[in-house]
Design a protein around this nucleic acid. Structure first.
Length: 301
DNA sequence: TCATGTTTATTTCTTA
DNA sequence: TAAGAAATAAACATGA
């Protein structure tokens, strides 16, 4: 963490968007989910810039949480009294910032299922939308289960083991944060894995049942395919189909306005180094995710 | 009452 | 220059 003074975040706006700041906060905690107040606290603790004009940026941050599909709201359990819900990262949004810029994402992370359903309807007027949605829900469940089990491999990077075939670019949100915020027993867990646990813990009777048995899933009522209350998993009119769109490389690292060398917070410094042309990761992983796009990560949950 | 959450509108900025 | 992402503002609803 930079010390207060000139050219630090005390008097400069950090080169991170609210989305990335929020993602950092969420990823920094072992549970991979935080209430709004804790997200505020994380940001203010680490970025003095945000200790002022709190009303302004906190409103923006709340807007981002609601507006962006990369954030999902997790209701508190009855035994977790408190105000507001927990916020977590969508399991499929880990490579949002893979171009190295925390200021702008490659493409807005969008979840869509209703849109897909509508398109489906448009193409086939005879189709039954409810049946279609039900099938989508089944697919999502299968994919979620798969995601939850394979994602942890991703963070093997963090513990210094050799790269598995599922190696993921180090410049992902989970990798950015994980290095510095390793928590015993959780350092090898990815957001997706964590989310699985969150959901299991929060709604065991729904989640476990649904994952275990691919029985027909009702898309009506209060709960969705994740065993989560539907409203908490998707916004109205949105879908759960995660479709980050392919992007073009943006190899240049983030530079602060005025050509200053970015003063990287300690918990990000490793990631920044990984952007260096001399960095082994940067040198040996020439944007493999372009060819692998994101789109391959299109999650038909 | 206040924190939280949603939504809409507008402006600014970056990138193709 | 247009499109899209992000920032900002504001109105409103809800719940502790």
């Amino acid at each position: 963490m930079p010390r207060p003074g000139r050219n630090t975040y005390s008097d400069q706006k950090p080169p991170y968007s609210y989305i990335s700041l929020t993602a950092m906060a969420i990823q920094s905690c072992p549970e991979k989910m935080l209430p709004l107040s804790e997200i505020y606290k994380f940001i203010m603790d680490r970025f003095p810039y945000y200790r002022e004009n709190t009303q302004r940026w906190q409103n923006s941050l709340r807007h981002n949480l609601s507006f962006n599909d990369c954030f999902i709201k997790i209701p508190r359990r009855p035994d977790q009294p408190g105000k507001g819900s927990f916020w977590a990262l969508h399991p499929s949004c880990g490579d949002m910032f893979e171009n190295g810029s925390f200021l702008r994402r490659r493409k807005r992370f969008k979840v869509m299922m209703m849109m897909a359903a509508q398109e489906h309807l448009a193409q086939s007027k005879l189709s039954d939308a409810a049946h279609y949605l039900q099938q989508q829900a089944k697919l999502r469940l299968s994919a979620l289960a798969a995601t939850s089990t394979h994602l942890p491999q991703v963070s093997s990077y963090n513990v210094g083991v050799s790269q598995p075939s599922t190696f993921k670019h180090p410049f992902t949100i989970e990798n950015i944060i994980a290095r510095e915020y390793k928590v015993p027993g959780s350092q090898s867990m990815s957001a997706g894995y964590q989310l699985h646990n969150q959901l299991t813990a929060a709604w065991p009777h729904m989640y476990n049942t649904m994952v275990d048995s691919v029985s027909p899933i009702s898309m009506s009522g209060d709960y969705g395919a994740f065993g989560m209350p539907l409203k908490s998993m998707c916004h109205e009119g949105q879908t759960l189909l995660a479709v980050p769109v392919p992007i073009k490389p943006t190899p240049t690292p983030v530079a602060l306005p005025g050509g200053l060398t970015p003063h990287i917070p300690a918990f990000l410094s490793n990631s920044y180094r990984s952007l260096s042309p001399m960095s082994p990761q940067a040198a040996t992983t020439p944007r493999e995710t372009h060819t692998n796009p994101t789109v391959q990560s299109v999650v038909v949950h």
